[in-house]
Design a protein around this nucleic acid. Structure first.
Lengths: 195, 195, 195, 195
DNA sequence: TGCTAAACGAGACGGTACGTCTAGTCTTCAA
DNA sequence: TTGAAGACTAGACGTACCGTCTCGTTTAGCA
């Protein structure tokens, strides 16, 4: 049984919270991840640095929440075919990774997550969790339709899709049109088709 | 006609050069990319910082050369089948990305390359160039054999393979056995098979 | 009405302040002015370099305050004769310039002050101000007694006395016994006697 | 018996020698003593740094020779009176210390000489030697004329005159007109008059 | 209404790394 | 051997951040 956490003292200021997230997203989009320092965020948000450290353990967690938490992913696509569903999923992925703040944040952010053992496990748990759920559902339907083998390794496919989009968009920096999503979905879709 | 570039002054010391590269690779493997500072490299190599800055513009270029230039990639695999060749290529990729120094360096290194416009273009030009050459040859043979369509987008496949391995090994940090290479080669191989 | 300057943020640490001044005086006395670096002072004082740069603009200002601010100069001498008063003043000057830290600091310190237009004006305003006040009072009394002409150029006499002591003690490095003070006071005293 | 020093190898280039001295004097006058580095001198003179170090042990000796060796001091003044002779000497001193390169060099140069035990003894031996010879002759004549006491401490008077001019011109930076020379010569002259 | 306690802004704190500069020495080739 | 050129080790420079700490002040719930 957990204690109900009687809140004592002055409650946290939600306006400061929001101002910090907004300032972070703006700074990342404008100056890049490396140039986004906690001090600069605090200055732009009009808060003290402690107000940031009280809520987030460091830059990586702050930027992650500021840039990737807001994204609302609509309903799981259900086009009737594996390739169609995959295309929709990849398109969403491309769009998410191509947003200005996201594209600017991703490489540095993933590097910081990878370098920190505590954060590392959260890449799968946080970054990829929503996509994984959606991908699993798409697969399940495809298996029921007989389009895909039930032995398909979902995590590997997810790594493949995310890795491909990340490499293309985040690292190489090439503008990712909808053509990329189609090609990629086609490539992977055919790769897992039942034969 | 190229200018003969008469070399004047004292020539650069190859022993210092090598000592710097060795110290860099060791430090990256021991302490990680973020904790590898130019000053620490200089101290371990027994050189001055200027001697490093004279040859490399910063940490990213130095670590890239120290960790990824040495890799010698044997002959292009020729197993007689697309899947076999792909498996061999992916296995090499996995091995390259799994080496201690490489795994420690990759995320931060790619982040620094991506953040710097000047370096960004060199990801394709340097990091991926050898793999691209080998992949193109494998494809060409597969097309001649009738296994693959000639319209296969080599760069996209390369991004997919590299991105998948990088995500799996570099970011998520999961140990990549040979099983991963087989699964991944199978997935992509079937994806580009001619039908 | 002066603005009350409401002090915001954490106040400056007086212990760090004092530790820096002490470390500076020690280092100057031990190693000399040239070998006294801001980094070495910070290390010995157990502070960061920023804590020094936050209070002083550079080595010259820091050493000046560490070495020459503490000096308390007793009451203005009043022996009843111009020569007696001058001798006492010069003796004080010799003593001040002969102290270990002062002797070690003076040449380099004055050079830095002279090289910086902003600091240059402060040689008269800070270094020499106390001595000038005392000298002026001694002169005033001598004029009242009829010993000296009222047209005596105080600044020139001060430059002469300080310059002579500095040259003899600071530059040439000859040990300055009380004999020097007597000779110098006699020389200058007779030079300004009314006739 | 000393060997005749048979000169072997390429003889030293006198044009380089002169170019270095000229470049040094210019740099000191333009940028000041502190900003005059051996490297900058070598670059402006079109020589290598070793060519400088082969002839001078460091910046202090180089600048000393470049700025103060050229000065030719005419015949010892002989106006018939102690005050007249002293005025002429002090005027020469003021002129020497007021020259652009000299004024820019003096504080830093004297600081370097004072900081180095080897150079320190040469302040009297080199800097002040010519002035001392001339001052001694003036005194001798004044003693013969009965104007001055034979017990006058020449070195102290010299330190006083040089110190006063150095403080006034070099440190405080006040323009030294001929009025200063007159005042100073009067002050010191009266101070050593026989009574 | 006062008390306690936490959050707030501001900014100082000890550290560490940055990339540049200078010192004085060393190593090359050419004269 | 000297010369220009420039690389070498060593270390100081002044700036920027890091994450923590201390101030005075504000804002809540509990007495």
């Amino acid at each position: 049984m957990t204690l109900p956490e009687a809140p004592r003292g002055r409650p946290r200021d939600t306006r400061a919270h929001q101002a910090i997230l907004t300032a972070t997203a703006e700074l990342v989009a404008e100056a890049g991840y490396a140039a986004t320092s906690i001090g600069a965020v605090a200055a732009r948000a009009g808060t003290g640095k402690d107000t940031i450290y009280r809520r987030w353990s460091g830059k990586a967690e702050l930027v992650y929440e500021a840039v990737f938490t807001e994204t609302e992913s609509g309903p799981v696509p259900d086009t009737g075919s594996l390739t169609g569903d995959l295309t929709a999923l990849v398109e969403a992925l491309v769009q998410e990774f191509s947003a200005p703040a996201a594209a600017a944040a991703l490489p540095g952010l993933l590097a910081d997550f990878a370098a920190n053992p505590g954060l590392r496990s959260r890449i799968r748990g946080h970054f990829l969790a929503p996509a994984r759920t959606r991908l699993a559902e798409v697969f399940e339907r495809a298996v029921r339709r007989g389009e895909a083998d039930s032995a398909v390794p979902v995590d590997l496919v997810l790594d493949t899709l995310a890795g491909a989009v990340f490499f293309h968009v985040g690292l190489v920096g090439e503008p990712a049109g909808p053509r990329l999503a189609g090609q990629l979905a086609g490539l992977v879709g055919r790769g897992i088709e039942a034969r």
